[in-house]
Write a protein that binds this DNA or RNA. Structure first.
Length: 217
DNA sequence: GTGCTGATAGTCT
DNA sequence: GACTATCAGCACG
């Protein structure tokens, strides 16, 4: 278990969304429940929002019941339900116009893997032994998966990410780290018919060599 | 390894 | 009434 550190300060989030999305790579997402601590290193993010992004939930400029927290202050959580059965976790970023948020698409599991496997439904509740590599590689490699693994539901929508139950820590940032290269690629799950040329915008950022991406860069 | 399909319910038009 | 920033399971080779 890694020793606890201090949560990232709100000033960390008060930057251009693309700068923030890149600097989130390598940071630790930490979740505390009654059962203990879960930790994961962020390896994949996507930017949504800005002056005109047809793929952003905030593109109309007007919040709805669902998207209200996307219009909240930087450093808070935007959690929404997708496909009726999964949640996606976003970090709210500053918005010069409209709203902006960073979708966290994948993390590398670090602490609390047994709890993650159980909440993912990959092991029986009372039969948790040594986890297989194939199980570990399927814990948090997608936005819906990591929300299951971290027990992130819509009850955390709008939460401030400065301490329990959910927060970020400095971790080992990837920006300016010569050992790890950051890739930029097009965002996952969009289609040209609804968002036009935005399907091609390289607004997905990855730690290219990570084994825990939702799909290869 | 790749690719297709069904599940499933909140949200918006 | 249609759509979706997804996933698991299955078929295939």
């Amino acid at each position: 278990m890694k020793m606890s550190s201090h949560p990232l300060d709100v000033d960390f989030y008060r930057r251009n969304p693309h700068t923030l999305a890149r600097d989130l790579l390598g940071r630790d997402l930490v979740r505390r429940t009654d059962e203990g601590i879960r930790r994961g290193r962020i390896v994949e993010t996507e930017v949504y929002g800005g002056p005109h992004d047809p793929a952003s939930h905030g593109d109309s400029g007007e919040p709805t019941d669902r998207t209200d927290s996307m219009f909240g202050p930087p450093g808070t959580a935007y959690v929404y339900t997708i496909y009726g059965m999964y949640q996606c976790f976003n970090v709210v970023a500053p918005a010069e116009q409209k709203a902006a948020a960073i979708l966290v698409r994948a993390v590398e599991p670090m602490d609390g893997l047994e709890m993650m496997a159980r909440d993912r439904g990959l092991v029986d509740r009372d039969d948790i032994g040594e986890l297989k590599d194939s199980t570990i590689g399927n814990l948090t490699t997608g936005p819906g998966k990591l929300c299951q693994a971290f027990d992130i539901g819509t009850s955390l929508d709008g939460a401030t990410l400065d301490g329990p139950p959910l927060w970020l820590e400095p971790g080992e940032p990837a920006v300016d780290n010569t050992e790890e290269s950051i890739g930029a690629s097009s965002r996952i799950g969009l289609n040209r018919e609804t968002v036009g040329e935005a399907v091609d915008w390289p607004w997905r950022y990855t730690l290219e060599d990570s084994e825990f991406l939702s799909r290869p860069g």
